[in-house]
Amino acid sequence: MSCFHLDNVSYRYDKSPVLTGIDLTLEPGEILGLFGHNGAGKTTCIKLILGLMTPNQGSVSVLGGHAGDPQVTQHIGYLPENVMFYPQLTGREILNHFARLKGASLQQVPQLLEQVGLGDAMDARTKTYSKGMRQRLGLAQALLGKPKLLMLDEPTVGLDPVATADLYRLLRELCEGGTGIVLCSHVLPGVEPYIDRAAILTDGALKAAGDLAALRRQANMPVTLSLDPANSISALEHVIDRASSSSGLIIKSDSGRLRVDVQPRDKMALLHAVMASGEVADISIHQPSLEDIYVHFIGSGGLAHRGGSQ
């Protein structure tokens, strides 16, 4: 039973399409990163899975049931972006309230608050909380009742680096326990080490989905090699030129090193040639990062043509 399965889902808001033909699945124990520019449809995607809206076309099945059914929502944890909890209530009171609504036991409340690092502040009114503390409270809320599907919208906003690392460790544990997790974030380098798969949305369409290796293959972006010459830089340059006469490589030299952008399929051939020549002292290989892949798929138009609200 998959955590959710979107099958050819389309959604229109006042006739203008927000999502078109989305196919996406999340299996238990998987962490999926959901990325896209502002207004790409991430939030709409999440709302469809949560059952807050129904698609105009296609089907959404969640945890083996229908999105929005009480038996289903009971097993979903959700951390929305920017929640202001009830300022007059204490962290513990708020969590008790939500636990009652979810039908989860109240005994786990103090434990959860400890776990997210609010142990000392649980009896203070939340109007005294900092942004990071509210974020932690939101996380504790999402973890109520051991969810089988966890959806986190910008979970690390306002968290310090240590708390962020703690959060990812916690998510990894949950994942190993069989929880499926969706992470929406704009901090791509931050989430890159933790996600199993990434889905990239632009203008309401799914541009790419898969694990990082598959995305790299799909993007077919050059790999960058940094080479330290053993003898002289010109000798090394000569070796590279010879090895790659067929495919035009870009060579840039900076501060006594060479940077070579090579197509993935030519990478090994070039490495062999360079190693055999004995002209190289050190090599470092830079694979395209999640951010590079993201920019590749989104296009680098950036702010200029990306507008709209989420």
């Binding site: 949560l50 807050l52 009480p70 959700y78 929640v83 202001m84 009830y86 979810k102 809320q141």
Partner: peptide, 15 residues
């Protein structure tokens, strides 16, 4: 709604 809790409440098993 202004506090953001409406969206959250509706994701709970609550009509």
């Amino acid at each position: 709604e202004e506090g953001g809790t409406l969206l959250l409440l509706l994701t709970y098993p609550l009509s």
